[in-house]
């Protein structure tokens, strides 16, 4: 049993890894297609039909490019930075339940890599380490623009992490658990958390945008002021890692938003019609992925719609708007639950 458990989990981990890479690869393609659509252009259309081989072409190009390490940089930290960014991006997917647990008679196989009872804390922990990837890379480059980009990035990420942590507390008060699987399975049918915690959901989504350094919070790579931001000195696949990690983070954040607030694999009525255990898992996975892809689309939509914040506006929003709002939300949730005799 033990070895089959380990092998099963290993295969699942490899699948989630493959899925993250695949979705991230094609997010780069769809980002450009959506940008093109919103700006009335064509977008990439040369590599393969409709340009669908573009991500592969980009990947091969990244591999074949020359690797440049500035003489004045700290060589090992320079390599360690992007590696850490990529590593943390790939590890966050471990606690997300991608589909309902497969139950067939005695066979019981959760479609989630790690079902730990502190899943939410694990997510926050790994995301926090992601800051180091950017900070180390930017500092090791020994370039003023990189350093400024890295400082902006880390200071933005830690500021929004506070509001993010506070917004989740209101959710945890209602669900009474930190296990991501339990939070997902509680939201049967229409009982999605977004209906009970709309404010927490909004704060969480805004913070997710800031955590992934996506527009309108993309100040760390603000090319008009900072050349390329923290990855100015990077080339070849090391640059690829930074760009790719951003897309993986976007994918995982979308999955987390769908799981915590939008019911995860739950969809009203669907499990009344689907009862075969195999199809329950397939449909659950399809529902989960559709929600996730919708949020990835939202990320892109916002990026091509809103202009970038100014740094003081960014800090103002994070500290003086979102943190007080989350605290108010916690108080309201507590009083609301007390009045409705939930406690």
């Amino acid at each position: 049993m033990e070895s089959s458990f380990i092998i099963g989990k290993f295969i699942l981990a490899a699948c989630v890894f493959g899925l993250s890479l695949f979705v991230a690869m094609y997010s780069t393609y769809f980002e450009r297609k959506i940008a093109a659509f919103l700006q009335d252009r064509l977008g990439p259309n040369r590599a393969g039909p409709f340009g669908i081989l573009q991500p592969l072409a980009d990947g091969v190009k990244m591999f074949m490019k020359e690797e440049i390490t500035p003489i004045v940089s700290n060589k090992w930290l320079f390599i360690f930075g992007p590696s850490l960014a990529m590593l943390t991006a790939l590890m966050t997917g471990a606690v997300i339940p991608w589909a309902p647990t497969y139950v067939n008679g005695d066979t019981y196989f959760p479609l989630q890599v790690a079902d730990i009872n502190i899943g939410v804390l694990y997510l926050f922990g790994v995301v926090s380490i992601g800051v180091y990837g950017i900070m180390i890379g930017g500092w090791a480059s020994n370039n003023k623009y990189s350093l400024m980009g890295a400082l902006r990035a880390s200071s933005q990420m830690i500021s929004y992490e506070l509001a993010m942590g506070l917004s989740i507390i209101a959710l945890v008060m209602m669900t009474g658990t930190l296990s991501v699987r339990e939070i997902a399975s509680q939201q049967i049918g229409w009982h999605w958390n977004v209906l009970y915690q709309p404010l927490a959901c909004l704060i969480f989504i805004i913070c997710a945008f800031a955590e992934t350094n996506r527009a309108p919070f993309d100040l760390p790579e603000c090319e008009t002021e900072l050349v390329g931001g923290y990855h100015t000195e990077y080339s070849s696949m090391k640059l690829g890692f930074y760009l790719f990690a951003e897309y993986i983070n976007m994918f995982i954040s979308s999955a987390v938003i769908s799981t915590l607030f939008f019911g995860g694999y739950n969809f009203p009525l669907i499990y009344n019609y689907v009862t075969d255990p195999f199809w329950v898992s397939v449909v659950g996975f399809a529902v989960m992925m559709s929600k996730t892809l919708f949020f990835i689309f939202l990320f892109m939509w916002v990026r091509w719609t809103l202009p970038r914040f100014r740094y003081d506006q960014l800090m103002h929003l994070g500290w003086k708007v979102l943190i007080p709002l989350s605290i108010i939300n916690i108080v309201l949730t507590g009083i609301g639950m007390w009045l409705t005799d939930k406690i």
Binding site: A13, A94, D115, I116, M237, K238
Partner: peptide
Amino acid sequence: DFLPIFLTFLVAAGFVVTTMFVTH
């Protein structure tokens, strides 16, 4: 319960190290 996280780490670290090596 935490073993799968270690397995995920192995997969991710293997990918990162291999890619860094190949691109070099």
